[in-house]
Amino acid sequence: MRRRVLPGFGISLGYALAYLGLIVLLPLAALAWKASGIGVEGLLRLLSSPRTLAALRLSVVGAVVAALVNAVIGLLVGWVLVRYRFPGRRLFDALVDLPFALPTAVAGIALTTLYAPNGWLGQWLEPLGIKVAYTPLGVFVAMVFVGFPFVVRTLQPVLASLERDVEEAAESLGAQRWQTFFRVILPMLAPALLTGFALALARAVGEYGSVIFIAGNIPMRSEIAPLLIVQKLEQFDYAGAAALGVAMLAISFALLVLVSLLQRWSHRWQERSL
């Protein structure tokens, strides 16, 4: 091996791999081993049951849509926080982290109180025919809430480091504002935006605490996959719970790989630099 300027490559790599194995891979292996207890037939039967499919669909589709919404709103909020100076900016900036800091159950109860048919917001939405609490829409609202900080926090440093002169160059070359945004600013933000999207997605897929309060947990309608797992655990069906967990894991992993490929593509201009 060539000599390196930075010392400790061997020991730090070994430590990192061992840690990763212990913290991430070992539990996942145990999960897979446990899941194998129900056998292929049992797994197929479990996954093809309409109730499981409905729960998985709600968890995944809800999380993807929530992450998309967070990407758009997060970009807007990040932009405002970085680009403009206004009174209360720092307070506003600190508020962004609140969904991180709040215990998820508290968030769930707060959201339910707000959106319940007699809640502060719910009582105005109810006459319009919009029901949020105890519907899939409520699940989606909770998912948006918990994933919100990720996009803002990943975008902020990148937005702050965008050089002003690049936008000025675009304008002096004849670009309209929207062309500057879509052809210059957005492509440069894309890698960070995708990172934020992936984090918000991962958080929303696995979210349990805040969702179950507002969801109402009506089977086939507003029941999320993590709740099904908990129910199986309560019935001492450990193998079934593990099998569902593996299914969710596979879906999440596939989604994250997809995002990561997209990200690599959006970042191609920084790869083979001199």
Binding site: E163, D165, V166, E168, A169, S172
Partner: peptide, 22 residues
């Protein structure tokens, strides 16, 4: 006249190239 209509070519101090474009 706005910048985009002035028919001016500007070369910036740090070049301001679009780093995501070839």
């Amino acid at each position: 006249q706005p910048a985009r209509e002035r028919r001016i070519g500007m070369v910036f101090q740090h070049y301001a190239l679009f780093r995501h474009l070839t």
